[in-house]
Design a protein around this nucleic acid. Structure first.
Lengths: 326, 326
DNA sequence: CTGAAAGCGCTTACAG
DNA sequence: CTGAAAGCGCTTACAG
């Protein structure tokens, strides 16, 4: 339409008019015509030519889980600012799914991955590490693999919560965890165990592990035993899902919080706040974790030796469920 | 590697060996070699060549809202089965954002859009309709635009809930809605108003509208007036967010549910179930709404005159908050 | 039955 | 200062 070659148009529209010393008038005419006709370059062709897709993958366990959807929202917004598009997938904590989704996303041409690794995925993650493909672990990490990650300081989280309960005068404090080898959970267990031991309360350490895919029956069983036989005076739940399921069980059992037993949960939500005895919980800095993961990934994509491991500070939101009733 | 031309490889790998009458042995060798070397075709090149991207866009108001993240999960899973990839964006109920995101997604080459239209987006939707671009409205619709949609039967939803409250003996029933022209909300209001009028209770119709972006202050104000001056005996909240915010306000006001006032919410969640008086709510068939939207879209992409409008059945989940206390 | 050519829409050296 | 050519990795007519 302007009467110049496609190459020239390309140069102008990519802001390389000066570099190629293109006539100002011609450049102006190209820009104006492009605007008039609402020209938008074909991104597929651009991608093929450049070998870049401006695509990144975000693999979580379940995008319908509010924790991960909050993360996804932030990652999406930040990626968009940085001119990247996010492809989101859910693994349901399943290794085979995770492996498949990694392959699918790589095949779709993502330039990097943000990944919540599931139980048993160490070999897969090691392979990703060995392949030098830009990858950032989110929420969970492997201490033996030197990969970038953006996680909570999990040890500090339960240390903080246990100290709070001890400070309130609780001693016989139980922990409900997942039956898993994943380190974010092991760290949370350690933070609790060490704090109890340091307070000379090793005898009161109770850790119960339940199935991650169907936690409710295990939680109910554990609670029955802990409350009726071990006479615990406080219970910490290691994740939001454990706490929510735990509250259903405690209601069914007619256990009064905090009169019969104090409760600390993980990750705040409306259910905690609207509970008859608002639930004290460990707050994760979701914004920082999410933004950290995408910022690290993009830096890594642009600079092949970039690496960063974030362990972000938890915060304890103290509400009624952990107050000592004298 | 096999010693044949790329064209032949392409034919074999796309299952067109027979069509092009390619030698069985050669075909076999191609397939095996492809598997051995983990060959995966470059999808970008494939897309450029075919003009198809196998991409669809999902524009919701906020992917971190549990209702939409539940939808996204189902759409994503179904799209994946159908060999499509979903690009998700959030508008924050803002028209400018919506317009921008539509442009961005079109430019990224999506072959269709699933869209939750925000207030004031009628012109944009009309333009999309006029352009014949494959589009399906989700959750919200425009009665005057003949576009495919997958929504709740909103009128039936509040009719159901109002009938239930009337059946429990409540008469002075108030409604908290958004201050909006969006038809899914207007339909919900009508379902309530008509049911009240049919019961001869026009005098007890109270509709209060609050700001969608910051509902809390408006809700608090409305509740103060409705409860203390209008002496309503039941309150229906038209969305999950309204109900959740409403429960915070009712707690602050020390209003007892259902003794002082009965409550009906929208879309169940843990906060409703774990509330001291579990909240009766209108359940949307999320699975059907989500699956409906993507199935319609894909059919529309493949068949240019395909159209379908779904108005799916609500269900009332009756819990303690709406039981009559005699 | 199989190979060589053309082209999807772009961008980057290379000429002039 | 600007145009013509080549090529990203594929697939589909077209030859043979």
């Amino acid at each position: 339409m302007v009467g110049v070659s496609p190459a020239l148009v390309s140069m102008v529209l990519n802001g390389k008019a000066e570099q190629y010393r293109i006539g100002e008038e011609v450049a102006k005419r190209v820009v104006e015509t492009a605007k008039e006709m609402h020209y938008a370059p074909n991104l597929v062709a651009k991608n093929l030519r450049s070998g870049k897709t401006q695509l990144v993958g975000l693999i979580v366990t379940d995008i319908s889980n509010p924790f991960y959807s909050a993360i996804a929202r932030i990652v999406e917004d930040r990626a968009s600012e940085l001119n990247y598009t996010v492809l989101i997938s859910s693994t349901d904590e399943n290794l085979k799914n995770t492996e498949r989704l990694v392959d699918v996303l790589l095949n779709k041409g993502v330039e990097g991955l943000i990944l919540v690794p599931c139980d048993g995925s160490m070999k897969l993650i090691q392979r990703l590490y060995d392949s030098h493909f830009p990858t950032v672990l989110l929420d969970r990490y492997f201490p033996d693999i030197d990969l970038s990650s953006s996680c909570l300081d999990n040890y500090r989280a339960t240390e903080l919560a246990t100290e709070h309960l001890l400070g309130q005068g609780y001693k016989n404090i139980a922990l409900i965890a997942y039956n898993t080898e994943m380190h974010h959970i092991l760290d949370r267990v350690s933070g609790y165990e060490d704090t109890m031991k340091n307070a000379g309360l090793s005898a009161y350490v109770h850790v119960r592990k339940v199935n991650i895919l169907n936690p409710r029956p295990g939680i109910r069983e554990a609670l029955e035993e802990l409350i009726h036989r071990k006479h615990v005076d406080a219970i910490m739940f290691l994740t939001n899902m454990l706490a929510t399921n735990g509250l259903y069980c405690l209601n069914e059992m007619n256990v009064k919080i905090p009169e019969d037993v104090a409760v600390v949960g993980f990750n705040g939500n409306d259910a905690f706040n609207l509970f008859y005895s608002p639930i004290t919980y460990i707050r994760q800095p979701i914004e920082q974790i999410a933004k950290g993961s995408i910022d690290i990934l993009i830096k890594r994509i642009k600079k092949s030796n970039y690496k960063s491991k974030l362990f972000l500070e938890p915060e304890l939101v103290i509400q009624q469920s952990s107050q000592r009733i004298s």
